[in-house]
Every structure is written in C-alpha cells, then in structure tokens.
Amino acid sequence: MARYYDSLTLFSPARYSSLPGMPFPDGDSDRYPHRDEVITYITAYAAGLDADARTRSRVTAVRTDGSGFAVDLEGGGRLAAQAVVAASGTFGRPHRPTLPGLEQFTGTVLHSADYRRPEPFAGQRVVVVGAGNSAVQIAAELAAVTRVTLASRHPVKFTPQRILGRDLHFWLKRTGLDTAPLGRLLRTPPTQLVIDDGRYRAAVEAGAPDRRELFPTIEGSKVIWADESAEEVDTILLATGYRPDLPYLAHLGTLDGTGHPLHSDGASSAHPGLAFVGLEWQRSLSSNSLRGVGRDAIRAARRLAAHLSRS
C-alpha cells in the first residue's frame, strides 16, 4: 500500500475497516483512515500474529508435492505446506487495456499504480482513462495543477458517501448487501459507482476535470476524440483497475486462460488444499477490501482446517 498515491484514503470508515481481533487505534471510528495510517495498522497487525511472516520473499511457483505442496521462492528457497492460501489479491497486476494507437503514443503512458502526487504533472495536458473511484479522485486532484480530461466508455455514476446521516457502509451492512450471498446482487449487471462526499460530482460538473467519451484512437502524440478533433496530449493515465496477481499458481492448473482462479467462494476447484483470499468479488463486493477480507479469511481457514482433519 506504500506504493499507492499520497492522498489515498479508505472509502470505508475505521469502524468497518478493521481486521478480525484488532480494531483501528483510538480515534474517531467514523474517520476515513489515510494511506499511511493503514500501513501502520497492517504492519502492527502482522507483527502481532503468531506466524512466520517473511517479507521480500516472492513466491515463484506452487506445485503439488505428494499430499501437500512445494512453494518455490525467488532465489532458490523452498517451503513445504499441507495447505496454501493465495492472498496476493489483485493489486500487484495493473490492467492496461488495449486501446487503438496506445502502443504508438509518443507521450507518457502511466497506470494509476504509478501515480503518487499531482505536482510533476503541472502544466501538462493529461487524459485519465476510467470511471471508477481512483480515476475520478486522481483526475480531480490533477485538475488543481493542470488541464485534465476524464475519458470513459460510460458516464461516471456517483453514489453519496453518507445517506440520512449515516455512512454508505452502515447501510450496506444493515441490508446485507456487503456480504455474501446477498452482495452478489450488485454484480449483475456490473456496477461501478464512485463514492462521493459531494466534491467529485461538483468537480466534474464544473469541468475540472471535464468528462468525455473515450477516444476512438491515438495518432502519435495526439488523441483523436469522437468528434474527430485532434489534440496534443502529454500524459495518458490509465485508471483501469487490476487483475488477479497469481502467476505462481500456473503449474497447478487452477487458473483460466486470463489468469483468473477457478474457485467457488474462495475454495479452489482443482485442489482442496488451496484457498484464495482478497479476490475481487470472491464472495461479495467487499472481498478485496479491508472491510470484507477478514470474513473471507475466516471462512477459508475453517475450510482448510476441515480438509486437513480429513487428510
């Protein structure tokens, strides 16, 4: 999380964003923790676990080994395990869509994963591609220092952060829409909503950033808009999300052709000793966030414990 942009804050209040057994430190439970506060919290949480926590130990492959697994580490190390939880989520693999002319664009192409702060973009002409929370927030932040367009296939859809004096997540929890199985109702049809306290809708309506339909193509340093007008652009910033970051599971035959895991509610469809945690829409809309990952982790641990007891 230390690599995310400086102004990042959680969309959910501290009271809904704690992991099992450890609430966020003292403070207003209705506050929205900022990036550095979350880093400190997660670091402290990991330090309090009765576990052999190894950082900077990248897993290169997981293979079956008898009744269990062999876990290969970068540099040649290896671990043996009876069960494996793939909890690397999605945020290690930025999604860079194929857009006509993008490969030949002579300006700078970045992903939101590369963005930190607005100052380096001052005076540039910037186009942010996307219509989700990060796209809108980054575009609005950049608009304070330069001219920015938010380009997307569909209009931005806003939802208020507070409804009848309560945070949105209060209502999601009260109605059950934040958890499985009811939470799956929000996935069909796919809905991408920008959680807004009023600032972002106002910024877009004021044209800072302005919002346009996604450009049909790019020619050299120019973006060609839907009305066929051409405009010189310095930077295209792709706020286009992420995909599962699970290349180390390729040897197990548990990924489909796009790299997505084959699973049911986080349980691998191919190996009963393999589970997933932190996937987008694993069980509900909150599965890849702090407010939901704890529930899914508990469920995965119980399933694996039952599997090991039968082995």
Rank of each mutant, 00 (worst) to 15 (best):
P155Y: 12
P155D: 15
V156S: 00
V156M: 10
K157E: 15
K157R: 15
F158V: 02
T159A: 13
I163A: 13
L168W: 01
F170L: 08
F170V: 06
W171K: 01
K173R: 07
R174S: 14
G176F: 05
G176W: 02
G176P: 02
L177G: 03
L177R: 01
T179N: 00
A180Q: 01
G183V: 03
R184G: 05
L185V: 15
R187D: 15
T188I: 14
P189K: 13
P189D: 13
P189I: 08
P189F: 11
P190E: 13
P190F: 12
P190Y: 11
T191E: 15
Q192M: 14
Q192L: 14
Q192K: 14
L193F: 10
L193E: 11
D197I: 04
G198D: 11
G198N: 10
G198L: 06
G198T: 08
Y200E: 08
R201C: 10
R201T: 09
V204Y: 05
V204S: 02
A206F: 03
A206C: 03
P209I: 05
P209D: 07
P209T: 04
P209Y: 00
D210Y: 01
D210L: 06
R211L: 07
R211H: 14
R212C: 10
E213V: 12
F215Y: 05
F215T: 01
F215C: 05
T217G: 08
T217K: 11
T217M: 10
I218W: 01
V223R: 00
I224A: 00
W225C: 10
A226M: 15
A226W: 15
D227S: 02
E228N: 12
E228R: 08
E228P: 02
S229V: 12
S229K: 09
S229N: 08
S229Y: 10
S229E: 14
E231A: 03
